[in-house]
């Protein structure tokens, strides 16, 4: 009897805790959405209530005054170029490194893995200089190839680990059938690598979409701003005009929320696969 009561109390505590934690997690976003649809006066007097009259104007204003679509397109192109580059460069290298047992392959692999320990802030000064000297600063494709350089080691590590676990026989059979090395790679190996490619695409797309510091250092032309850069710039302009700021923030969140709703399962799987390896 007593054990039953204790178990019940325990259950109630757990449920209360988890619901409180959920409210804590979601309320900042919900409050931001709610207040982005109010006037500034209403935010001041009644921050928790529903808007008296929904102010779509906040969004229309922001949409007209800012380069939202342009920044969205920029960010999308940047992620697309960077992630395809990473998948291309890293799958080639990771696969071949796992299949070649020479001193050179050990050296290469060691170099790539070691660099995963270097924090970004330790390379950023040198990076600004080298991109300036090579004239790749200021453009989206330039930023993308920098992302390929920084993102490849981790992807190579994942491709390497995945390749080790697939049997060699298929490749040997294809070679006997007369494939050359490159046909073998893109006709036979790359399709087999698909599961780990999905993980790599998810991890890198999220990282680059949400990365702030590197674009901040590399992009100064407004027309090439990413979503985060223009959000940050607008935030500075609209000091304490919260109804507009919140509308900007929600617009910046929107794409990722939509992606999350539709791809939630794959994203969670990609995150845990990527971290455990």
């Amino acid at each position: 009897m007593r054990a039953n009561i204790l178990a019940l109390i325990g259950k109630v505590v757990v449920i209360v805790f988890i619901i409180a934690a959920s409210i804590f997690t979601l309320s900042p976003i919900l409050l931001a959405v709610l207040n982005s649809l109010k006037t500034n006066g209403e935010i001041y007097t009644n921050i928790l209530s529903l808007p008296e009259k929904i102010q779509w104007n906040n969004y229309i204003d922001v949409f007209q005054k800012t380069n939202y679509l342009r920044s969205l397109l920029n960010t999308f192109l940047l992620v697309l170029m960077s992630v395809s580059g990473i998948v291309f460069a890293a799958s080639l290298a990771g696969y071949k490194l796992a299949r070649t047992k020479t001193k050179l392959s050990g050296l290469f692999f060691g170099l790539f893995v070691m660099s995963m320990l270097i924090p970004f802030h330790s390379i950023m000064i040198g990076l600004v200089r080298v991109t300036h000297d090579l004239h790749v600063q200021g453009s989206l494709w330039g930023l993308a190839i920098v992302y390929v350089g920084i993102g490849s080691p981790m992807a190579i590590f994942l491709y390497h680990g995945f390749t080790k676990n697939i049997p060699k026989e298929i490749e040997e059979a294809a070679l006997i059938d007369g494939c050359n090395e490159f046909q073998l790679y893109y006709k036979v190996v790359f399709p087999i690598l698909r599961p780990i490619t999905a993980t790599i695409v998810i991890l890198n797309a999220l990282w680059i979409w949400n990365d702030f510091l590197l674009p901040l250092l590399m992009i100064s032309d407004k027309n090439r701003y990413t979503l985060l850069l223009s959000t940050k710039m607008l935030f500075g302009q609209y000091t304490s005009d919260w109804s507009q700021i919140l509308a900007i923030l929600i617009m910046a969140l929107l794409p990722i929320v939509i992606v999350y709703i539709f791809l939630q399962k794959h994203i969670v799987k990609g995150i845990s696969d990527g971290a455990i390896k």
Binding site: G85, F88, A89, A90, L92, A93, Y95, K96, L97, T100, T102, L104, S105, F108, L111, F112, S115, I118, S122, I123, M124, I125, G126, L127, R129, V130, T131, L134, I145, V146, V148, G149, I150, S152, P153, I156, E181, Y185
Partner: peptide, 27 residues
């Protein structure tokens, strides 16, 4: 086998050494 390895690693290694290794050592 090393020659083929070099070709396969070239794109990744080129960008990696330019944008990670060189800035790191430069630092």
């Amino acid at each position: 086998s090393n020659r083929i390895l070099l070709i396969f690693c070239l794109p990744a290694f080129l960008l990696y050494s330019t944008f990670v290794l060189y800035p790191a050592l430069g630092g």
